[in-house]
Write a protein that binds this DNA or RNA. Structure first.
Length: 792
DNA sequence: TGAGTCAAAA
């Protein structure tokens, strides 16, 4: 009993009001609340605005939104306070539209003026809309009404814009705030982390640490820890840990859990489990972090042990536990066990949880069970953005680029807004497919949505432009990026390699080292690859040695294969063989394949037999080797042998991938196969081809027949190769694009020597630049010369 | 006199 009530009892009205208020506060169920409501009505308090407001609020908390609405409507003249409570109530009960309608009603039909609370609640509600349009509208109204600089509203806006991946908008709000409190900083950091802008979030965190005015709290540290883990920045994570100790937050359960996840992502489960033991009473989230930590590091026994321990404590596992546990099985390709977990999820009803269905989709696509992945995706009733992203990237990683793009378009008809993760996947699909016009469209989307500070997105754009033939545009983006990581550098170097620009690739590699960026295995592969395609033998040799001796890298089979390729393409076949013999590891199919490819270019039959013999032993399923070998016999005019190799292929019913070529005209893709007559303009295409062949022969063109697989007469062979898909695509390009414009085509296999020579002639005759992307690299044909130097 | 933002696993 407090002093005031002791000496002077409250007036009756106030005393009763307090009674009702505490009655409402203590209610934990709807029926308690209904009883309290009855008491209020009986005692004539049904028009007491503060009591009714408290009751309405509590009803909203208990999810009785319709009850709350009826109560609100029964009040003859609700004040701003009550409006605010109901606007928030709708927002918290999955009714953002009702929330915003009420806000509009308040502005239009009452003489009340919204205050900072009203705007705060309405802006929070606008996160339930498919895009940020409602939010920007409210934002501008808030500014007009003088609440633009309110810290709560500022934080809500930053949170919201980041949820819609509008990084630039969020930054603008953040920068324009006259004062920034801890919460505003935290909102910025955690929002960036949630949309995978890890680099950005770390930069903001560092700014926050540098700001002496601002106090860091456990939220700040917990927010940035996932970024440190994703970026595998061990020093940063340890820095955060010591900061936590300095601030006395080291036993805070959120921070310990974050650190467990961090160390697990860095591969250090030992430290993670030490931290786990430091938690007094680990909760479900901590268990899940540790379980998934063990799982990611393939310590499956520990995962399962901890899972059992969790159940033994009587804790119920939730969807995240399963999500963390499912991948236990896929490093071993244990499809049956994944199916088992799937069944368990179906039986216990958690399969409708979007996190679970997303995890299952991911696991199935990593097991290359793309149909099962799609089935789970289709059956999930509640699709989150993550579900869409998992399915799209599943398609992309399995090379099903058409399906990925189709699903991406489908997602947009469902009004699901793509985020940077979606964009990164879809750009990878464009890169694989060479779909430049879709790539351009996605680039516009990146600009529109403000994703251009996302390092993953920008790196994917570089890759896309490089693989779609626009190496200059790729470099422009590369140069425009302030923050680059090793993948960014790799993509650019690899792009130069694809285009045969060996010198540029080497220059960039040198620059990368000067910038202090540590090269990865992929970096060396890209540089070696570039050397190979540009015939830079000495440089390649030097880089390989530097990789082993200066950088301490253990070469992988693909590095060895690349070296064999460098020697082999340059015609130094004996040197290549010598290199293979000196390798400290047993040469695998990639290495012999590289040698065989080189033998093919240089028509070296003796070594080809050796290489192919090894290949048949190591990789009997791969058709490519049979084709190469058969071609080599054909070169020697040893047709019976060539035929017998082809028979092996037929007997084992190994199918050769049919060659096809894609060309985009007017933003539409046209695909041609060899001898194709299905195109609506077939007649004109073949006529153009006839005309070209005539002019080419006049200019001295002779058909190269080496790769024609059949031992028929030369003249007949000429007829067969001249309708290769690339020739059809080029002919179509010539008749359907502006004179003088560049022609770009994409071939799924390596371009054959005949088409290569023919394209050189065509580029000269037609005065067109022709860019050909084949399975290995780019060829830029100009004025009768190819950028590859006939060397591919 | 009844209302408010950010945080750990997936």
């Amino acid at each position: 009993m407090n002093f005031r009530t002791a000496i002077a009892p409250l007036p009756a009205l106030e005393r009763n009001r307090n009674l009702f208020l505490s009655l409402i506060n203590e209610s934990t169920t709807l029926s308690h609340l209904a009883q309290a409501h009855a008491q209020i009505v009986v005692n004539g308090y049904k028009n007491d605005i503060s009591t009714v407001t408290r009751l309405t609020h509590k009803l909203c908390d208990l999810k009785a939104i319709n009850y709350a609405r009826d109560l609100f409507l029964s009040v003859p003249k609700p004040d701003l306070f009550l409006f605010n409570v109901v606007i928030k109530g709708y927002s918290n009960n999955n009714s953002p539209r009702s929330s915003i309608s009420l806000f509009t009603h308040l502005k239009k039909n009452t003489d009340l003026r919204p205050d900072n609370f009203t705007y705060f609640f309405a802006i929070s509600a606008s996160s339930g809309f498919p895009d940020e349009k409602v939010a920007t509208l409210l934002h501008s109204q808030a500014i007009v009404d003088g609440f633009g600089l309110d810290l709560f509203i500022g934080s809500a806006l930053v949170d919201l814009y980041l949820k819609f991946s509008k990084v630039e908008f969020a930054k603008k709000v953040f920068d324009e705030m006259p004062e920034r409190d801890t919460v505003l900083w935290n909102t910025m950091i955690s929002g960036l982390v949630k949309i995978c802008c890890f680099e950005d979030s770390v930069l903001v965190f560092k700014d926050m640490v540098a700001d002496a005015e601002i106090q860091l709290d456990s939220t700040s540290l917990a927010a940035v820890l996932p970024a440190a883990g994703e970026l595998q920045q061990l020093r940063l994570g340890m820095g955060i840990q010591s900061l936590a100790t300095k601030l006395g937050l080291h036993s805070h359960v959120h921070i310990l859990t974050g650190l467990i996840s961090f160390y697990s992502k860095c591969g250090d489960t030992e430290t993670a489990s030490l931290l786990f033991d430091q938690i007094d009473r680990p909760d479900l989230v901590s268990y899940n972090a540790m379980i998934s930590g063990y799982t990611c590091n393939n310590e499956t026994d520990s995962s399962l042990r901890l899972f059992k321990e969790l159940l033994a404590f009587g804790e119920r596992a939730n969807s995240s536990t399963i999500v963390g546990l499912i991948p236990v099985f896929f490093p071993f390709g244990h499809l049956d066990l994944t199916l088992c977990i799937h069944c368990f999820c179906v039986k216990s009803g958690v399969v409708s949880n979007p996190a679970i269905s997303t995890a299952l989709t991911t696991v199935y696509s990593r097991l290359n069970e793309i149909e099962l992945a799609r089935q789970v995706f289709d059956e999930s009733t509640e699709k989150s953005l993550a579900s869409w992203n998992a399915m799209i990237s599943g398609y992309t990683q399995n090379g099903l680029t058409d399906a990925a793009i189709l699903l991406f378009q489908n997602m947009q008809t469902f009004k699901v807004q793509p985020n940077p993760v979606t964009v990164t996947s879809i750009l990878s699909a464009c890169a694989q497919l060479g779909a430049l016009s879709l790539g351009n469209w996605v680039h516009d989307l990146v600009k529109r949505e403000g994703f251009h500070s996302n390092i993953y997105v920008m790196t994917a754009l570089i890759d896309m432009y490089a693989k779609c033939g626009s190496i200059v545009e790729a470099r422009r983006i590369f140069d425009s990026m302030q923050e680059k990581n090793v993948v960014t550098w790799n993509s650019m170097i690899c792009g130069y390699g694809l285009h045969g620009h060996g010198k540029e690739a080497l220059d960039l590699f040198t620059k990368m080292l000067q910038f202090g960026v540590s090269p990865s295995g992929v970096t060396f592969l890209s540089v070696l690859y570039a050397c190979s395609h540009a015939g830079l033998v000495t440089e390649g040799d030097r880089i390989f040695h530097s990789m082993v001796h200066d950088h301490g890298f253990e070469p992988l089979p693909e590095h060895y294969a690349c070296m064999v390729d460098i020697f082999g393409r340059a015609g130094k076949l004996e040197k290549a063989l010598e290199f293979i013999k000196r390798m400290p590891v047993e040469p695998g199919p990639a290495i012999w394949g590289a040698l065989l490819g080189a033998c093919m270019i240089h028509k070296e039959t003796r070594l080809a037999h050796l290489a192919s013999k090894r290949l048949f032993e190591l990789d009997p399923e791969n058709v490519g080797y049979y084709v190469l070998l058969s071609n080599i016999f054909s070169v020697d005019k040893n047709y019976p042998q060539a035929a017998s190799v082809r028979q092996v292929v037929r007997r084992r019913s190994l199918a050769k991938t049919p060659g096809c070529t894609l060309i985009e005209v007017g933003g539409l893709p046209h695909v041609f196969t060899s001898g194709d007559r299905s195109h609506p303009q077939t007649k004109a295409i073949y006529a153009k081809l006839e005309m070209l062949m005539g002019k080419m022969r006049e200019a001295g063109f002779q058909a190269e027949t080496v790769t024609a697989l059949h031992d028929v007469e030369d003249e007949e062979k000429e007829l067969m190769v001249k309708v290769h898909s690339e020739k059809l695509a080029i002919a179509f390009g010539l008749i359907s694009t502006e004179p003088g414009s560049e022609i770009r085509i994409i071939k799924n296999l390596r371009v054959c020597p005949d088409c290569h020579t023919a394209t050189k002639f065509i580029s000269k005759i037609s005065g067109r630049d022709i860019v050909v992307r084949d399975a290995n690299r780019f060829h830029h044909f100009k004025d009768g010369i190819c950028s590859c130097g006939d060397y591919w």
